[in-house]
Write a protein that binds this DNA or RNA. Structure first.
Length: 806
RNA sequence: GCGGAUAUGGCGGAACUGGCAGACGCGCCAGACUUAGGAUCUGGUGUCUUCAGACGUGCAGGUUCGACUCCUGUUAUCCGCACCA
């Protein structure tokens, strides 16, 4: 019989489906294990060859855990709200709901074709009103607790999507999604107070089993820094508050800088002699996008405020105040004390404007370059701080400032609150109404979900308002509180809303009374292993940790963190090593690969392609190698059918034990490529030594998480009991992983000369005797003296020789 | 600029706590079977070479009996952050 992968794959997918082999059981007695992948966005393009990489990896883990006796939850769903669908729908004059429905159907078919062991009875769709009802419900809780608030503020506005973006969605000054320019715009927006959780989001990382680069990235994004706030009196009779991480250098503060947007300017404006100049600078700064500002960062600009000066609280000196866009309005207090001697940016600015540079930390030459070392410096020119280390000076000055009531210790974060409104149709409606009398009023829980209106037109408006704003019938409603006239909020939620809690819904997808039932959450607890893309580190991953903590505070979930372990995969690149994209025309469609080689080959290749955590270029020739491997397995099994089934063949025993160990360990460590390599080696060994039925059966069990269809088919043909995916994961015997005879490397003066074969675990003396009687070694030793012998057990022997001294 | 990672044959990549560099696969070469092969099987495949060996893990040093692995310096590429005071 030939290996007819198409027929085989269909057959087993059907069997698994009918027997519900991969259904997770709530409340089972078995230990539970929750494996999660990031659910896909069902785009119109269908499944990309990049999708199966993380899916196959986690499918392997899920299948292995089941074989190890766990009750595994390995779910799938669709994150279906969002712009691409809406844009596609507008272009093709379809309803986003229809587009979504079609795309989900297509994705489902493609995912099933690859044989993933998802529990298909728990599928969720974020656009299903039964689902987004609970997304809205959580939002109302945020609102109730004061963590959702509306604020007028400058926001990132994507000129192409006609929609605001969260800070996390702006990459290099352009829209993360469409690459269009992002400009600043003043808008009134719903915000989520993620900053309230900054400290916990940071600290709790320590206890999590996340790969280091994820933790680092989140830490940098949260950006905690400790310092002090200090009030400077001004000649205008008021106070200017600054934040600094170097309060120790206060004696060196020779001028101040405030951001062009700083509020205090308004009250100073009348006193300014160069008012017009200042206003012109403000206007110029306002016109620039954030990106343009940083682009021009190379050259510092600024204007001195003529007419107001500040007083350095420790020196008593009057110092000038500047406005400059190198000071950000959104961080700290929007104002800084400038210490040009010990800060790169202040130094640069001072040099340009000819401002005095005072050394207050000794260790460098502040005329040449700012001295920023905080480890070795000693305070000078700093009155009562002189002679102290930087660290000691910090605590002393903070003590002093606190006592005087002009400053205090302060912690700041880079993390900003989350801009949560989007001016688009295809998202969850924000369940609030605005009443002239009562203000913002939540829609009562009993009236959830607030459904998206079913309308013909949902195109973007040019005014920057949500398309929902044009739907009078939907907008105009009555106030749930007073019954008077009210208007619905017309902005919708961002794409990240539905995905912030989806892992909870999988535990109990059909619950009508709660987002997740108490028993279900108690049983499943939290996700044990979550794999996803690095690009979500400061978006989805951070957002969902925030939501989870909030739900934890409400007492709705038992853990303060949603994911115990987080790993991440590299991208699949095009053949030339470039990113796969439609415009480059180098996109590989998984359907083509499955048609030509089968799903098992695709799965195997995508795991064999290279280090799972690194990017790897696709190679259409290398795919064939994996197909060839499966062909060889097939032939081997056909031959073994007539062979005995009692115990491993003695010749293969050591290799089998080694492979069981290697494959098992490698799966846990994301080393799928070497796991497959070891399976290939085992097959090579079987071909050389011959093999019996028991040998092949163990091979099939080990292979089954990677290439489940062929394993299942051959298992059946070899007369295996039950299903291959239901077999217990094999055990290995450490003692049996080593061959009876082993090869030892022989080095002379550190260089490999030859090898010898000795019995495993031979005594050193035996090894030395064998080596010394070796012809090659004897020749090399002629006329030389053996000074030293180094033996590494079962590995290597190194003979140190010297010319004989006469 | 700051932080992190990476650098190994023609290619993708292996190498445990310092112990036979190049596992496994692709490609290539030779042979077998073939009407045929872009199928299959067998063998070979780091470089140089006087066939004894010499040289080889970005580059320059160092530690060690022994270094892809540790240390110092340096270059390149990728990723993240990007005036965060």
């Amino acid at each position: 019989m030939k290996y007819d992968f198409t027929a085989i794959e269909k057959k087993w997918q059907k069997t698994w489906d009918e027997k519900k082999c991969f259904a997770a059981v709530n409340g089972s007695d078995k230990p539970k294990y929750y494996v999660l992948i990031e659910f896909p966005y069902p785009s119109g393009e269908g499944l990309h060859v990049g999708h199966p990489r993380p899916y196959t990896a986690m499918d392997i883990v899920a299948r292995k855990r089941r074989m190890q006796g766990y009750n595994v939850l390995f779910p799938i769903g669709f994150d279906a709200f969002g712009l691409p669908t809406e844009n596609y729908a507008i272009k093709h004059k379809m309803h986003p709901r229809e587009v979504t429905k079609r795309n989900i159907a297509r994705f489902t078919e493609q995912l099933k074709m690859l044989g993933f062991s998802f529990d298909w009875d728990r599928v969720i769709d974020t656009t299903d009103p039964e689902y987004y009802k609970w997304t809205q419900w959580i939002f109302l809780k945020f609102f109730e607790k004061g963590l959702a608030y509306k604020a007028k503020m400058p926001v990132n506005w994507c000129t192409s999507c006609k929609c605001v973006l969260a800070n996390e969605e702006v990459v290099d000054g352009v829209c993360e999604r469409c690459g269009s320019e992002v400009v600043r715009k003043e808008k009134s927006q719903w915000m989520l107070k993620i900053t309230e959780y900054a400290e916990r989001l940071l600290n709790d990382l320590d206890e999590l089993d996340f790969i280091e680069r994820v933790k680092t990235q989140q830490r940098n994004w949260i950006g905690r820094s400790t310092g002090a706030e200090v009030d400077f009196e001004t000649t205008a009779g008021d106070k200017l508050r600054v934040f600094t991480t170097r309060p120790d250098t206060l004696f060196g503060a020779t001028y101040m800088v405030i951001s062009p947007e700083h509020e205090i300017l308004r009250s100073w404006l009348l006193r300014l002699e160069n008012k017009d100049e200042v206003i012109a600078y403000q206007e110029a700064a306002a016109r620039k996008s954030d990106f343009e500002r940083t682009e021009m960062a190379k050259e510092k600009t600024g204007i001195e405020l003529k007419g107001v000066r500040a007083i350095n609280p420790v020196t008593g000196n009057e110092i000038p105040i500047f406005i400059s866009d190198y000071v950000l309005a959104t961080y700290g207090t929007g104002a800084i004390m400038a210490v040009p001697g010990h800060d790169d940016r202040d130094w640069e600015f001072a040099k340009k404007f000819g401002l005095p540079i005072v050394e207050v930390v000794r260790g460098g030459n502040v005329e040449e370059a700012p001295y920023t070392d905080i480890e070795n410096g000693v305070m000078v020119n700093s009155g009562f701080l002189n002679g102290l280390s930087v660290e000691n000076a910090k605590s002393k000055i903070i003590e002093w400032l606190t006592a005087k009531g002009i400053g205090k210790e302060k912690v700041n974060f880079k993390l900003r609150d989350w801009v949560f409104s989007r001016q688009r149709y295809w998202g969850e409606p924000i369940p609030l109404v605005y009443c002239e009398k009562c203000g913002w009023v939540p829609v009562p829980e009993s009236e959830l979900p607030v459904l998206l209106p079913d309308v013909e037109s949902y195109e973007t408006t040019d005014t920057g308002e949500s398309p929902l704003a044009l739907m009078d019938e939907w907008v105009n409603t009555s106030c749930p509180k007073c019954g008077g006239k009210a208007k619905r909020e017309t902005d919708t939620m961002p794409q990240w809303a539905g995905s912030s809690w989806y892992y909870l819904r999988y535990m109990d997808p059909d619950n009508k009374d709660a987002l997740v039932g108490e028993d279900a959450i108690k049983y499943w607890n939290r996700v044990d292993w979550y794999n996803g893309g690095m690009e979500h580190t400061t978006l989805h991953l951070l957002y969902s940790r925030f939501w989870h903590k909030f739900l934890y505070d409400l007492g709705l979930v038992p853990t303060s963190e949603p994911y115990a372990k987080r790993t991440s995969h590299g991208m699949i690149l095009g053949e030339g090593g470039e990113k796969m994209s439609k415009s480059r025309g180098n996109v590989i469609n998984p359907n083509d690969i499955v048609n030509e080689f089968g799903a098992d080959t695709l799965r195997l290749y995508i795991m064999f392609i290279g280090d799972f955590e690194k990017a790897a270029p696709w190679s259409s020739t290398a795919v064939k190698g994996c197909k060839r491997f499966l062909d060889r397995v097939w032939n081997l099994a056909e031959k073994a059918m007539a062979m005995p089934d009692k115990g491993y063949s003695p010749k293969n025993e050591a290799a089998i034990h080694r492979t069981i160990k290697k494959v098992g360990d490698d799966i846990e460590n994301l080393k799928f490529n070497t796991a497959i390599a070891s399976l290939m080696s085992l097959v090579n060994e079987f071909s050389e030594n011959g093999c019996n039925k028991a040998d092949v059966k163990i091979l099939l069990i080990l292979l089954s998480p990677f290439a489940p269809h062929i394993a299942e088919e051959l298992w059946e043909r070899l007369g295996g009991k039950g299903l291959c995916c239901g077999q217990p994961w094999p055990e290995y015997d450490e003692a049996k992983t080593v061959e009876a005879e082993i090869t030892i490397a022989v080095q002379i003066n550190g260089k490999l000369r030859t090898t010898v074969t000795v019995a495993n675990n031979s005594e050193d003396s035996v090894v030395i005797d064998t080596v010394l009687s070796d012809e090659k070694v004897k020749r090399a030793m002629e006329g030389k003296e053996l000074v030293k012998t180094i033996v590494v057990k079962n590995k290597l022997i190194n003979l140190i020789l010297k010319y004989q001294s006469s």
